[in-house]
Design a binder for these strands. Structure first.
Lengths: 171, 171
DNA sequence: TATTGTTATACTCTATAACTATA
DNA sequence: TATAGTTATAGAGTATAACAATA
């Protein structure tokens, strides 16, 4: 990485996805580009740290996080919906995690097409460690945000989530 | 604080990445998950529409967008920095776009290791069409956001961008 | 007929690292 | 020595679609 002086104007206007916006672009587009830049920045960092420090990936981590709050397990199709990716991909990620002994498939007795996926004890222990580090990374990256900004960001994003979902026609 | 319709709780709590948060999770983590959900939602939609309606991808679109505001061209390494991906990947994306006649490499006369990449006329025409549709999609998806929310979102994200960049120690 | 999950395929994007040509 | 870009490799994630088993 290159190192430029860290005055805020320079840093804030540093090269990134947002800098593709033209002076006369509409404000909504600029807003989206700024949001995309923030997400990409953070996601890149999380992916990198998950890989180097824990040998795992964001989708694998996300899938385990979903399972943590479903002690009785989740169906593959639930995971698909929650993680916003198609069914076949869930099979792949679940395969990997099962191979590592972090999760297990439990055959459903009521519907023999279906199975429940849940964390193993090893999975829970492993996830706890990663999640702890993960939350620290997040806190560090969001640390420079004032309390009021953080709060209004949360509110506005809630509104956006609703707006986008409504627009895209679905829950 | 916010004034949302009654159904908003249901829609807002629909299954997604944020729904992995536990009741006692720290607020910062919840904030990140909400932001990630919004970005994923919008990115998925943009990717899908770019593919089905224009046969292209988000990175290709982003690269062309970068070039649009650099009529004299950009170096590969500039593109790499702006798009926040490594150098080798830029080569790949530039190869594809060049093969389609949308951009061209111009050998630098002053530094023979380097070349400038810029849009062709065809590239500019093609990009204009896609960008127009793209901005409409964005406006639709952000349409349900109140003006004040949109504005505070923009401000807060600016702060976050700065905070994250500072924390990650670089441009 | 519809649904659940798997499999197969193909492609895009990605990081890493070794390499070349040039500076 | 350092830099600009390419190539090679390997792997992750993705959509699509065909498929089997079951509902």
């Amino acid at each position: 990485m290159t190192h430029l002086p860290e005055t805020s104007a320079i840093v804030l206007n540093g090269p990134d996805l947002e800098s593709r916006a033209q002076p006369d672009d509409h404000q909504t587009l600029r807003l989206w580009l700024r949001m995309l830049t923030c997400c990409t920045l953070i996601e890149n960092e999380l992916r990198s740290r998950l890989r180097t420090e824990f040998g795992t990936t964001l989708p694998r981590f996300d899938l385990m996080a979903q399972l943590l709050r479903a002690p009785d397990g989740m169906k593959m199709s639930d995971l698909s919906r929650h993680m916003m990716v198609t069914n076949g991909n869930i099979t792949g990620i679940v395969d990997q995690l099962e191979r590592d002994g972090l999760i297990e498939r439990i055959k459903s007795v009521t519907d023999r097409r279906s199975s429940l996926v849940r964390l193993t004890d090893k999975g829970r222990r492993t996830f706890a460690k990663i999640a702890k580090a993960h939350e620290e990374w997040i806190r560090d990256m969001f640390g420079g945000l004032r309390e009021t900004s953080s709060h209004s960001l949360f509110q506005s994003l809630g509104e956006l989530k609703l707006a986008a979902r409504t627009q895209l026609g679905g829950v």
